[in-house]
Amino acid sequence: TEEFVRLWREAVRHNQTLHWNGTDFIPGDEWAEEFARREEEKL
């Protein structure tokens, strides 16, 4: 979602874990980066 992408970019900028829907998205984590890339492509 647009909100997820916005929060993810913020988390990456501050190198912080994003807690989203009970899942931890960690900047630099391969799975999280791939998920975020797919979400961005949907926008």
Rank of each mutant, 00 (worst) to 15 (best):
K42S: 07
N21M: 14
T1W: 14
E39I: 15
G28S: 04
E10Q: 06
G22R: 01
T17K: 11
V5F: 06
E34M: 10
V12C: 00
V5R: 03
G28L: 03
G22F: 06
P27K: 02
A11T: 01
T17V: 14
E2D: 11
E2A: 14
R13V: 13
Q16S: 10
H14K: 15
N15C: 13
I26Q: 12
Q16T: 14
T23E: 12
V12H: 04
W20N: 01
L7D: 07
L18K: 00
T17N: 06
H14Y: 12
R37P: 01
I26P: 05
F4N: 00
A36V: 12
F4V: 00
H19S: 11
A36C: 13
V12M: 07
H19E: 06
T1R: 14
F35S: 02
F25M: 06
R9W: 13
E10C: 14
E3S: 09
E33M: 09
D24E: 11
I26M: 12
R9N: 11
E41L: 14
R6K: 13
F4D: 01
H14R: 15
E34S: 09
G28M: 03
P27A: 02
F25P: 01
N21R: 14
E2W: 10
R6P: 08
K42Y: 06
L18S: 00
E10M: 04
E41G: 09
F25H: 07
W20A: 01
R37Y: 05
W8I: 04
R37T: 08
E2F: 09
V5Q: 05
W31R: 07
D29E: 12
R38S: 12
R38H: 12
E3L: 09
N21Q: 14
R9G: 12
E10V: 04
A36I: 07
P27F: 02
L18T: 02
A36T: 03
F35T: 04
R38C: 15
A11W: 01
R37F: 06
E10K: 04
I26G: 03
G22E: 07
R38K: 14
P27M: 02
K42W: 07
Q16D: 04
E33F: 04
E30I: 12
K42L: 08
D24Y: 08
T23N: 13
